[in-house]
Nucleic acid binder design. Structure first.
Lengths: 123, 123
DNA sequence: AATATATTTGAATGGTTGTTCAACTATTAT
DNA sequence: ATAATAGTTGAACAACCATTCAAATATATT
């Protein structure tokens, strides 16, 4: 993303009441960033599928890779991102690493979006 | 994204029961794509803020731009994406175009994620 | 008709990111 | 120790995307 800016809405008419009312309710910048980051992490098909799979079963990397038809490397890279965001946790057992959802909350979020998508002929 | 693939998890040990069980529950590819797409659209800070702002008030492009400290052009581009995904709707009034959320559903989704982020010291 | 304002749009650009490949670590079995 | 297997990691590359700039459209005002 670029950072430089030139024209920032040369205000002529603005509903100042509305704007300042919303401005007050606005969440802090860091919250908004975290919010965007969370959505973004869920917004890749590979990761979406991983999350869905893990919402059903605890799975090892190899199983996930097979399920998605992806390489172990690709899956591992995505799992790292999900780990960093604390969306999944893992447990080692010998050579294998078993992943599962870190949080029930994420399941709600996921199902809420699923309902949204499955409704009103969007699929 | 690249499309070519070489190694697709050379299966040695796999928990076939688990994998086929999850495979059965897996949603169709198109559903997963829509799901990912929806999350992705919400996963940009500018769009996240726009959605939040519109969850509070119906606003014109200029007001949104001022609220976010962004150019009208940048906001308009993002609004087009949100329109295409049917997350926002608009109404013209003279020269102005007023945007609002298309759907209450999206507000739930948003608040669910907000709860997730605001909990457990993530901010 | 000419001017001003609100918004949209297309092209260009520079940063971001998902996958691949190859190399690496860790653990188990022989 | 050696080999085999599960998973991780860093670099590289191509595709993607958000912003900017400039130009266009649409509506209202003079």
């Amino acid at each position: 993303m670029k950072r430089t800016r030139t024209e920032i809405c040369e205000i002529t008419y603005i509903d100042r009441k509305k704007v300042s009312s919303v401005m007050k309710k606005m969440k802090p910048e860091t919250t908004m960033q975290q919010l965007a980051e969370t959505f973004k992490v869920l917004g890749d098909p590979t990761r979406t599928k991983i999350i869905f799979a893990l919402s059903q079963e605890e799975l090892c990397v190899c199983d996930i890779a097979n399920l998605l038809g992806a390489t172990k490397s690709a899956v591992s890279h995505q799992l790292r991102i999900l780990r960093n965001m604390r969306l999944v946790k893992y447990r080692k057992e010998g050579k294998m690493v078993f992943y599962s959802l870190d949080d029930e909350h994420i399941k709600n979020l996921f199902n809420e979006c699923l309902r949204h998508v499955e409704e009103e002929g969007r699929v």
